[in-house]
């Protein structure tokens, strides 16, 4: 099982490395959005709350443009049937989940410096800021993986993914925007509640996703 999962992750990264679709499209989106906001703001300083909102709106739509690709690609190329026949659903989902978490981590590592540089952002509590950003990333990517599998089976995928993802992702966005805002401002880290919330959400969603994936994946 572990070997199958590693083989799947390797295969997915190799395909991504060859055409760099998800990384280039998602990063280009985040980059142009950041530049557009910075240009439109014209040096006007934003409050920490506004920065947190903008940053997470960019992160959310970056996830929308990149994370569904992992399942959509399999359906478009007709390789999903091969996967269904040759790999256990558990191994496929674990590989896709880990791939999405790693991919979104890489994307966040690329987006953050760009945002900090162009928006001239001064982070008051860098450690907690990174904690919120990466925990939020894990919570987002873990909840979006099963939804990507659902969307890949449907028509009008581009429009459907944000529609079905937004209500499910909102608790994460809500909590993480508050936490990021506090870490950017002088309030810093006030309570572990937000981080516990993000961890609990990720754990619950991942457990339920494992239970449901079989029904979404097989015909």
């Amino acid at each position: 099982m572990v070997k199958t999962i590693i083989a799947h992750i390797k295969k997915d990264f190799r395909i991504e490395f060859r055409n760099r679709y998800a990384v280039s499209v998602s990063f280009s989106f985040a980059f142009t959005t950041t530049l557009a906001i910075s240009l439109a703001a014209g040096g006007i300083p934003f409050s920490p709350q506004t920065h947190a909102v903008i940053l997470w709106v960019i992160m959310f739509f970056t996830a929308m443009s990149g994370l569904a690709h992992i399942f959509v690609r399999e359906e478009d190329r007709g390789t999903s049937l091969f996967l269904r026949l040759n790999s256990p659903a558990l191994a496929v989902f674990t590989a896709k989940l880990l791939y999405n978490v790693l991919l979104f981590f890489v994307l966040q590592c690329m987006i953050l410096p760009v945002y900090l540089f162009f928006m001239q952002l001064d982070v008051q509590s860098p450690l907690f800021f990174l904690g919120y950003v990466f925990l939020g990333g894990i919570a987002l990517s873990s909840s979006l993986t099963i939804l990507a599998a659902i969307v890949a089976r449907a028509g009008a995928r581009g429009a459907l993914f944000p529609v079905i993802s937004l209500p499910v992702s909102l608790p994460v966005l809500w909590v993480v925007i508050q936490g990021t805002s506090r870490s950017l401002g002088r309030a810093g880290f006030s309570s572990p509640g937000d981080m516990v919330f993000l961890l609990a959400f990720s754990g619950t969603i991942t457990a339920v996703s494992y239970l449901l994936f079989e029904f979404v994946w097989h015909d």
């Binding site: 659902i150 499910v168 608790p171 619950t204 339920v208 996703s209 029904f215 979404v216 097989h218």
Partner: peptide, 20 residues
């Protein structure tokens, strides 16, 4: 597989409702 997929989405969404 529509019925299975929409049912899976409802269950998934139901799990997030207590958080809201």
């Amino acid at each position: 597989s529509r019925q299975r997929i929409v049912s899976a989405y409802l269950v998934f969404a139901m799990v997030t409702v207590p958080f809201f």
